[in-house]
Amino acid sequence: MSLTNTRPEATPLPLSQGEEHSESSPLSIHDMTIAYHRKPVLWDIDLDLPEHHLIGIIGPNGAGKSTLLKSVLGLIPRASGRVLVYGKPFDEQRHRVAYVPQRESVDWDFPVSALDVVLMGRYKRVGWCLPIGRTHKKIAMEALDKVGMADYARRQISQLSGGQQQRIFLARALAQDADLYLMDEPFAGVDAATEKAIIALLKDLKSSGKTVAVVHHDLQTVGSYFDTVILLNMRVVAYGPTAEVFTEENLNKTYGGKLTLLTDAAEALARNQASIHRETKSE
């Protein structure tokens, strides 16, 4: 089923700029649209993340920030579009991507220790059915140490403060030893000390050649935290170096929202239960 295969008027373009770069880009998203229950929440996202950068994803509530990360990871089906990680499909590159979900997404009453959670970052490398070897435990302990939680390795996770829980999540991502880190609001509900520690860690990651994309809420700290920002509100409003893009005008566009038309259209699509077609054929 397809709505759009005929394109008498779309100029047959050479590969867009994005795709030429995608060989080296840690994450390139091409033409991606996401719908929740048939209601589009992200429209035609085109992004090529630069390497060795600390990238902030900024936008109002419901702008689709978390959705963007989840769809990249394949947790939400894409209505259309393509995602490449270091030039290859995500499925082949999973081991190079670490994901830090929102802290509220799990049950912190779960009977595991901090170390157990961090070890989960190693499970895929340990392999199915095999016990966890000493090297993996060592790596996990190092990750805990990096976030300043080595003393809490044996502590049950429900006995940790919010900031400490967030650090544990971070340590789990570190233990994955990935190249691209996708973090969903790592600063939500953490204390000032933790926030400082986390941002220092992220900057370390960046300088060691990793790419870190962070969903962030606090506009005041954007300037000092990130060198690149993505301003998002159902579509990419602006994207580029913080100094150029993080302007009042762009913020107004992001948060002010002249989007009633788009929301109306999205509602209409949802109401009609019109499925936004999935890519069935390659282009």
């Binding site: 709505l3 779309a10 100029t11 867009s16 259209a265 209409a268 009609n272």
Partner: peptide, 22 residues
């Protein structure tokens, strides 16, 4: 003009939206 999408990228979105536009 309003969302700042690239001209070569809007065709598909418009394809979907034209069917629900009154």
């Amino acid at each position: 003009s309003e969302l700042g999408l690239r001209p070569d990228h809007v065709h598909r979105t418009a394809e979907r939206l034209e069917h629900v536009t009154d």
